[in-house]
Amino acid sequence: MVYVQRDKNGLLLRVEAEPFDGMTDTLAVESEELARWLATKEEVHNRLSRLKETDLDMVRVLEDVVIVLIDRGLISFEDLPLAARRKLDERALARADLEGLVGVVTQSVRDCRQGD
């Protein structure tokens, strides 16, 4: 048996193994309703996870769009809110640092190869 909370229409909102404040009913573990609810919950979780995985890629896309708009003179960097300008500056500095490190590593590899 599991303990559940239902909404005003009788739909499951929450399922727990132990009694909890706000519970409104119980269900058999083998019930079809519980199986459907768990399957739906898992599907929602999977879809949200896939969406979240694309968030970082989307950040880079938006950053690139802002840069293109600025480069083409369609917006000014100063038009952006201060918080957005700071974030873009931080990311630009982080990428420049990373590119510098990649350059150092690449040069070190070349130097090692030439010494062989």
Rank of each mutant, 00 (worst) to 15 (best):
M1P: 11
V2S: 04
Y3T: 03
Y3M: 08
V4W: 03
Q5S: 09
Q5K: 12
R6E: 08
G10I: 02
L11R: 10
L11S: 06
L13R: 07
R14D: 07
R14Q: 14
A17N: 06
A17Y: 01
E18T: 07
E18K: 13
P19F: 01
G22F: 07
D25V: 06
D25K: 05
L27Y: 00
V29C: 03
E32V: 07
E32Q: 08
E33C: 04
L34E: 00
A35M: 02
W37M: 06
L38C: 02
L38D: 00
A39P: 06
T40F: 14
T40M: 15
T40D: 15
K41I: 02
H45F: 13
N46R: 15
R47T: 03
L48T: 01
S49G: 07
R50H: 12
L51G: 09
K52I: 13
E53F: 10
E53H: 10
T54M: 14
T54V: 13
T54Y: 08
L56R: 08
D57P: 01
M58H: 05
M58E: 10
V59Y: 05
V59F: 09
R60Y: 05
V61L: 15
E63T: 09
E63P: 07
D64Q: 15
V66D: 00
V66H: 00
I67C: 12
I67F: 13
I67K: 14
I70Q: 10
I70M: 12
D71C: 13
R72F: 10
L74R: 12
L74P: 03
L74E: 12
L74M: 14
S76H: 10
S76N: 11
S76C: 10
P81C: 05
L82N: 05
L82P: 08
L82V: 10
A84P: 00
A84N: 02
R86V: 13
R86K: 15
L88C: 03
L88M: 12
D89Y: 13
D89M: 15
D89W: 14
E90H: 08
E90P: 02
A92C: 11
A92G: 11
L93G: 01
A94S: 10
A96C: 06
L98W: 03
L98S: 06
L101Y: 06
V102Q: 15
G103K: 11
V105G: 01
T106V: 08
Q107I: 03
V109Y: 08
V109P: 11
R110Q: 13
D111W: 00
C112I: 08
R113G: 04
Q114W: 01
Q114Y: 01
Q114H: 05
G115S: 10
G115W: 08
D116W: 12
D116S: 07
